[in-house]
């Protein structure tokens, strides 16, 4: 019985994906046919033209940079929160929650104004920066939990064996944290890659990410093009997530950290 329910749940995820593939390569598929009448890969070639590919590649690059920036900033913060007692911890925790719990449309506008003031509005830099801000909480959360579970015990042991604070950090803790750092970066990439509204607000239509290409098609009525773009969109996101997401579970037995996936 349980197996049946699980199977149905799995189907709920595979079904839309399957439909996506069908739509992507469907020629004519009028209502109420359950399967396309004809298949055609013609539009695939049209879609994968030079400009789309270049946008895609640049998008991957900028999302990766956002994720990297976020991880680099989140890691020391996580260490501070996990390993030190200091006044103001609660306030800082609250601040770090802001990008996730504050309604996005509310603060995106603020960011837009800010970047305009700074003169970097409508640039890739602004987009990368704003994405990184959105990704931050996830990185800090996960890394704090991992840092907590890894603990300082091994570092202390290294210190007692003669290692300098920096050495101990670099040779003992960092290797232990590496899987988490990779995983968090992958997660950050996925979040950044999927952003549409934020990129629109900050990039003003000048900065073209892959999401900016895909979403208008989904908004419009063309199912086949929407499906094609969605397929690429999902493929990359899910691909990166699957490749690196499993790392956490393999390396960290402790519960809390692994669960902190993203929306």
């Amino acid at each position: 019985m349980k197996k049946l329910l699980l199977f149905l749940c799995g189907l709920c995820i595979l079904l839309p994906l399957g439909m996506l593939v069908l739509y992507a390569f469907a020629g004519r598929w009028p209502w109420p046919a359950l399967f396309p009448e004809s298949f055609s890969a013609a539009r695939l070639y049209d879609t994968l033209d030079g400009s789309t590919l270049s946008v895609l590649l640049r998008s991957i690059g900028s999302s990766f940079l956002s994720a990297l920036l976020s991880t680099l900033v989140a890691a020391p913060a996580a260490r501070a929160i996990a390993c030190y007692h200091f006044p103001g911890k609660r306030i800082i925790r609250a601040l770090l929650l802001a990008p996730v719990l504050l309604p996005s449309t509310a603060y995106f506008v603020g960011l837009q104004t800010l970047f305009t003031r700074l003169g970097i509005i409508d640039t890739t830099l602004a987009v990368i920066l704003s994405h990184a801000i959105v990704i931050l909480p996830y990185g800090v959360w996960t890394l704090t939990d991992v840092m907590n579970s890894v603990g300082l015990g091994l570092e202390e042991q290294a210190r007692s064996l003669g290692a300098s604070p920096f050495s101990a950090l670099a040779t003992v803790t960092l290797p232990l944290l590496l899987p988490a750092l990779v995983s968090v970066t992958a997660l950050g990439f996925v979040i950044s890659f999927g952003q549409y509204f934020l990129t629109l607000m900050i990039g003003g239509g000048r900065v073209r990410t892959f999401a900016m290409l895909a979403v208008p098609y989904i908004q419009g009525g063309d199912r086949q093009l929407s499906a094609l773009y969605s397929l690429i969109f999902v493929g990359i996101s899910a691909g990166i997530y699957s490749l690196f997401g499993g790392i956490m579970a393999r390396h960290y037995k402790d519960a809390a950290a692994i669960g902190k996936g993203a929306m």
Partner: peptide
């Protein structure tokens, strides 16, 4: 649970 966690990685638009 890889399959069941997949939607987390899917963009909202998709």
């Amino acid at each position: 649970s890889w399959l069941f966690r997949l939607p987390i990685a899917m963009p909202h638009a998709v």
